[in-house]
Protein backbone atom coordinates (compact mmCIF):
# COMPACT_ATOMS: atom_id res chain seq x y z
CA UNK A 1 0.00 0.00 0.00
CA UNK A 2 1.49 3.33 -0.95
CA UNK A 3 2.16 5.42 2.19
CA UNK A 4 1.10 8.60 0.49
CA UNK A 5 -2.38 7.39 -0.40
CA UNK A 6 -4.89 9.55 1.40
CA UNK A 7 -8.47 8.35 1.35
CA UNK A 8 -11.43 10.50 2.17
CA UNK A 9 -13.28 9.66 5.36
CA UNK A 10 -16.17 8.12 3.47
CA UNK A 11 -13.92 5.97 1.33
CA UNK A 12 -12.28 4.72 4.51
CA UNK A 13 -15.72 3.83 5.80
CA UNK A 14 -16.51 1.92 2.62
CA UNK A 15 -13.27 0.05 2.83
CA UNK A 16 -13.98 -0.89 6.42
CA UNK A 17 -17.48 -2.03 5.59
CA UNK A 18 -16.24 -4.21 2.72
CA UNK A 19 -13.58 -5.67 5.00
CA UNK A 20 -16.20 -6.69 7.56
CA UNK A 21 -18.47 -8.17 4.88
CA UNK A 22 -15.62 -10.08 3.30
CA UNK A 23 -14.50 -11.53 6.62
CA UNK A 24 -18.10 -12.51 7.43
CA UNK A 25 -19.29 -13.81 4.01
CA UNK A 26 -16.01 -14.20 2.05
CA UNK A 27 -17.46 -11.82 -0.58
CA UNK A 28 -19.37 -8.52 -0.57
CA UNK A 29 -22.20 -7.34 -2.72
CA UNK A 30 -23.21 -3.80 -3.61
CA UNK A 31 -26.58 -4.34 -1.94
CA UNK A 32 -25.01 -5.59 1.28
CA UNK A 33 -22.76 -2.60 1.38
CA UNK A 34 -25.58 -0.15 0.82
CA UNK A 35 -27.67 -1.82 3.58
CA UNK A 36 -24.78 -1.88 6.02
CA UNK A 37 -23.91 1.73 5.49
CA UNK A 38 -27.42 3.10 4.89
CA UNK A 39 -26.64 4.73 1.55
CA UNK A 40 -28.14 4.20 -1.88
CA UNK A 41 -26.61 1.74 -4.31
CA UNK A 42 -25.40 4.33 -6.82
CA UNK A 43 -23.23 5.95 -4.19
CA UNK A 44 -21.76 2.54 -3.46
CA UNK A 45 -20.84 1.88 -7.08
CA UNK A 46 -19.21 5.33 -7.31
CA UNK A 47 -17.12 4.60 -4.24
CA UNK A 48 -16.23 1.14 -5.50
CA UNK A 49 -15.00 2.56 -8.75
CA UNK A 50 -12.73 4.94 -6.87
CA UNK A 51 -11.42 2.24 -4.57
CA UNK A 52 -10.81 0.05 -7.56
CA UNK A 53 -8.85 2.81 -9.25
CA UNK A 54 -6.63 2.90 -6.12
CA UNK A 55 -6.26 -0.83 -6.60
CA UNK A 56 -7.76 -1.64 -3.23
CA UNK A 57 -10.71 -3.73 -4.39
CA UNK A 58 -11.48 -6.10 -7.24
CA UNK A 59 -14.61 -4.63 -8.72
CA UNK A 60 -16.37 -5.43 -11.98
CA UNK A 61 -20.02 -4.50 -12.43
CA UNK A 62 -22.34 -7.38 -11.39
CA UNK A 63 -19.40 -9.39 -10.02
CA UNK A 64 -18.81 -10.11 -6.36
CA UNK A 65 -16.47 -7.72 -4.65
CA UNK A 66 -13.23 -8.78 -2.94
CA UNK A 67 -10.34 -6.86 -1.50
CA UNK A 68 -6.90 -6.73 -3.09
CA UNK A 69 -3.93 -7.49 -0.87
CA UNK A 70 -3.27 -3.79 -0.48
CA UNK A 71 -6.92 -3.31 0.34
CA UNK A 72 -6.81 -5.97 3.05
CA UNK A 73 -3.74 -4.39 4.62
CA UNK A 74 -5.23 -0.97 4.48
CA UNK A 75 -8.51 -2.09 5.95
CA UNK A 76 -6.81 -4.08 8.68
CA UNK A 77 -4.80 -1.05 9.68
CA UNK A 78 -7.98 1.00 9.81
CA UNK A 79 -9.71 -1.55 11.92
CA UNK A 80 -6.74 -1.72 14.23
CA UNK A 81 -6.83 2.02 14.73
CA UNK A 82 -10.50 2.02 15.26
CA UNK A 83 -10.24 -0.73 17.81
CA UNK A 84 -7.43 0.97 19.66
CA UNK A 85 -9.21 4.28 19.83
CA UNK A 86 -12.41 2.57 20.86
CA UNK A 87 -10.70 0.52 23.52
CA UNK A 88 -8.94 3.61 24.80
CA UNK A 89 -12.25 5.44 25.12
CA UNK A 90 -13.80 2.37 26.62
CA UNK A 91 -11.09 1.21 29.00
CA UNK A 92 -9.04 4.26 29.80
CA UNK A 93 -11.68 6.95 29.73
CA UNK A 94 -14.42 4.52 30.88
CA UNK A 95 -17.01 5.72 28.38
CA UNK A 96 -20.20 3.84 27.50
CA UNK A 97 -19.62 1.23 24.74
CA UNK A 98 -22.07 2.96 22.41
CA UNK A 99 -20.61 6.38 23.04
CA UNK A 100 -17.12 4.92 22.60
CA UNK A 101 -18.02 3.30 19.31
CA UNK A 102 -19.67 6.44 18.02
CA UNK A 103 -16.82 8.74 19.09
CA UNK A 104 -14.15 6.39 17.86
CA UNK A 105 -15.78 6.50 14.44
CA UNK A 106 -15.75 10.26 14.35
CA UNK A 107 -12.32 10.74 15.93
CA UNK A 108 -10.68 8.55 13.33
CA UNK A 109 -11.56 11.10 10.68
CA UNK A 110 -11.81 14.40 12.51
CA UNK A 111 -8.18 14.66 13.55
CA UNK A 112 -5.31 14.75 11.13
CA UNK A 113 -3.14 11.77 10.40
CA UNK A 114 -0.17 12.61 12.59
CA UNK A 115 -2.23 13.38 15.66
CA UNK A 116 -4.28 10.24 15.20
CA UNK A 117 -1.08 8.31 14.72
CA UNK A 118 0.34 9.75 17.98
CA UNK A 119 -2.93 9.02 19.72
CA UNK A 120 -2.89 5.46 18.49
CA UNK A 121 0.68 5.14 19.67
CA UNK A 122 -0.30 6.46 23.08
CA UNK A 123 -3.17 4.04 23.42
CA UNK A 124 -0.82 1.29 22.33
CA UNK A 125 1.75 2.46 24.86
CA UNK A 126 -0.82 2.44 27.63
CA UNK A 127 -1.63 -1.14 26.76
CA UNK A 128 1.95 -2.28 26.46
CA UNK A 129 3.50 -0.45 29.39
CA UNK A 130 0.94 0.01 32.09
CA UNK A 131 2.45 2.03 34.91
CA UNK A 132 2.48 5.64 36.03
CA UNK A 133 4.47 8.65 37.05
CA UNK A 134 6.06 11.57 35.31
CA UNK A 135 8.90 9.56 33.88
CA UNK A 136 6.30 7.52 32.17
CA UNK A 137 5.39 10.47 29.96
CA UNK A 138 9.08 10.95 29.30
CA UNK A 139 9.28 7.31 28.34
CA UNK A 140 6.42 7.84 25.97
CA UNK A 141 8.44 10.46 24.16
CA UNK A 142 11.25 7.98 23.77
CA UNK A 143 8.75 5.31 22.76
CA UNK A 144 7.62 7.54 19.91
CA UNK A 145 11.16 8.18 18.76
CA UNK A 146 12.21 4.58 18.68
CA UNK A 147 10.50 1.27 18.63
CA UNK A 148 10.07 0.27 22.22
CA UNK A 149 11.28 -3.16 23.09
CA UNK A 150 9.44 -5.44 25.42
CA UNK A 151 12.48 -5.51 27.66
CA UNK A 152 12.18 -1.81 28.08
CA UNK A 153 8.57 -2.12 29.12
CA UNK A 154 9.43 -4.88 31.54
CA UNK A 155 11.88 -2.53 33.17
CA UNK A 156 9.12 0.08 33.27
CA UNK A 157 6.94 -2.37 35.08
CA UNK A 158 9.59 -3.22 37.61
CA UNK A 159 9.83 0.37 38.71
CA UNK A 160 6.08 0.70 38.59
CA UNK A 161 5.62 -0.08 42.25
CA UNK A 162 8.16 2.50 43.23
CA UNK A 163 6.53 5.14 41.08
CA UNK A 164 3.08 4.34 42.35
CA UNK A 165 4.36 4.70 45.89
CA UNK A 166 5.80 8.08 45.06
CA UNK A 167 2.65 9.23 43.34
CA UNK A 168 0.53 8.31 46.29
CA UNK A 169 2.83 10.24 48.59
CA UNK A 170 2.39 13.19 46.32
CA UNK A 171 -1.37 12.96 46.40
CA UNK A 172 -1.86 12.23 50.04
CA UNK A 173 0.25 14.28 52.44
CA UNK A 174 0.76 11.27 54.64
CA UNK A 175 -0.68 7.78 54.77
CA UNK A 176 -3.23 7.19 57.49
CA UNK A 177 -1.31 4.44 59.17
CA UNK A 178 1.69 6.68 59.62
CA UNK A 179 3.29 4.61 62.34
CA UNK A 180 6.06 3.76 59.91
CA UNK A 181 6.92 7.36 59.07
CA UNK A 182 9.88 8.43 61.18
CA UNK A 183 12.56 11.09 60.95
CA UNK A 184 15.71 9.79 59.32
CA UNK A 185 17.61 10.59 62.50
CA UNK A 186 15.44 8.03 64.24
CA UNK A 187 16.74 5.11 62.19
CA UNK A 188 19.40 2.93 63.73
CA UNK A 189 22.47 1.81 61.80
CA UNK A 190 21.47 -0.87 59.31
CA UNK A 191 17.88 0.32 59.06
CA UNK A 192 16.38 1.39 55.76
CA UNK A 193 13.77 3.88 54.80
CA UNK A 194 12.16 5.56 51.84
CA UNK A 195 12.16 9.34 51.78
CA UNK A 196 8.67 10.80 51.99
CA UNK A 197 9.43 14.40 52.79
CA UNK A 198 12.43 16.66 53.17
CA UNK A 199 11.59 19.36 55.66
CA UNK A 200 13.39 22.49 56.65
CA UNK A 201 13.94 25.37 54.31
CA UNK A 202 16.35 27.46 52.30
CA UNK A 203 19.74 26.44 51.02
CA UNK A 204 20.25 23.50 53.36
CA UNK A 205 17.05 21.84 52.35
CA UNK A 206 17.74 22.40 48.68
CA UNK A 207 21.24 21.07 49.11
CA UNK A 208 19.99 17.92 50.81
CA UNK A 209 17.51 17.32 48.00
CA UNK A 210 20.11 18.01 45.35
CA UNK A 211 22.42 15.47 46.91
CA UNK A 212 19.80 12.89 45.95
CA UNK A 213 17.41 12.86 48.91
CA UNK A 214 14.37 13.13 46.67
CA UNK A 215 11.00 11.72 47.50
CA UNK A 216 10.80 8.00 46.97
CA UNK A 217 14.53 7.41 47.25
CA UNK A 218 15.61 4.49 49.36
CA UNK A 219 18.15 5.32 52.06
CA UNK A 220 20.04 3.23 54.57
CA UNK A 221 21.73 4.40 57.74
CA UNK A 222 25.20 2.98 57.42
CA UNK A 223 26.59 4.08 60.78
CA UNK A 224 27.05 6.89 63.24
CA UNK A 225 30.29 8.77 63.79
CA UNK A 226 32.32 7.53 66.79
CA UNK A 227 30.99 10.41 68.89
CA UNK A 228 27.39 9.62 67.92
CA UNK A 229 26.90 12.40 65.40
CA UNK A 230 26.86 12.93 62.36
CA UNK A 231 25.34 9.97 60.54
CA UNK A 232 26.62 8.11 57.49
CA UNK A 233 23.71 7.49 55.13
CA UNK A 234 23.76 5.47 51.96
CA UNK A 235 21.71 7.10 49.23
CA UNK A 236 21.72 6.54 45.48
CA UNK A 237 24.72 4.28 45.81
CA UNK A 238 27.02 6.60 47.70
CA UNK A 239 27.67 7.69 51.27
CA UNK A 240 26.38 10.99 52.52
CA UNK A 241 27.00 12.34 55.97
CA UNK A 242 24.40 14.46 57.70
CA UNK A 243 24.17 15.83 61.20
CA UNK A 244 21.33 14.37 63.21
CA UNK A 245 19.69 17.78 63.38
CA UNK A 246 19.65 17.85 59.57
CA UNK A 247 18.49 14.25 59.29
CA UNK A 248 15.67 15.04 61.73
CA UNK A 249 14.01 17.15 59.03
CA UNK A 250 13.86 14.23 56.61
CA UNK A 251 10.86 11.96 57.02
CA UNK A 252 11.20 8.39 55.86
CA UNK A 253 8.94 5.42 55.66
CA UNK A 254 10.65 2.64 57.53
CA UNK A 255 11.45 -0.36 55.37
CA UNK A 256 12.34 -3.88 56.39
CA UNK A 257 16.01 -4.38 57.12
CA UNK A 258 18.23 -5.60 54.33
CA UNK A 259 19.65 -9.08 54.61
CA UNK A 260 22.68 -9.33 56.87
CA UNK A 261 25.71 -7.48 55.63
CA UNK A 262 28.22 -10.26 55.34
CA UNK A 263 25.93 -12.43 53.25
CA UNK A 264 27.39 -13.49 49.97
Amino acid sequence: MPESLVLSASLEDYLEAIYYLVTENRVARVRDISTRMGVNMSSVTGALRQLSSYNLVHYEPYEVITLTEAGIARAKEQVRRHTIVKNFLLNVLSLDPAVAEDNADRMEHAVDGETLERFVRFAEFVEKCPRGGREWIELFRQFCEREASNEQCERCLRSCLEAIGRRQDGLKPMPENSTDIVPLSGLAPGEKGRVTKVGGQGPIRKKIVEMGMVRGTEVEVEKLAPLGDPMDIKVKGYHLSLRKEEAAGILVEKLPRSPAKGEK
Partner: peptide, 24 residues
Protein backbone atom coordinates in the same frame (compact mmCIF):
# COMPACT_ATOMS: atom_id res chain seq x y z
CA UNK B 1 -0.55 22.36 43.46
CA UNK B 2 2.37 20.39 44.88
CA UNK B 3 2.26 21.30 48.53
CA UNK B 4 5.96 21.95 48.34
CA UNK B 5 8.30 24.69 47.16
CA UNK B 6 8.80 24.62 43.37
CA UNK B 7 12.58 24.46 43.79
CA UNK B 8 12.20 21.14 45.58
CA UNK B 9 9.75 19.79 43.02
CA UNK B 10 12.09 20.85 40.23
CA UNK B 11 15.01 19.03 41.85
CA UNK B 12 12.70 16.03 42.24
CA UNK B 13 11.83 16.07 38.57
CA UNK B 14 15.45 16.35 37.50
CA UNK B 15 16.22 13.26 39.48
CA UNK B 16 13.14 11.66 37.94
CA UNK B 17 14.50 12.34 34.48
CA UNK B 18 17.90 11.02 35.53
CA UNK B 19 16.64 7.83 37.09
CA UNK B 20 14.61 7.26 33.95
CA UNK B 21 17.74 7.63 31.84
CA UNK B 22 19.75 5.42 34.20
CA UNK B 23 17.14 2.71 34.22
CA UNK B 24 17.35 2.70 30.44
Amino acid sequence: VFGDAPEIVIADRRYGFISGACRE
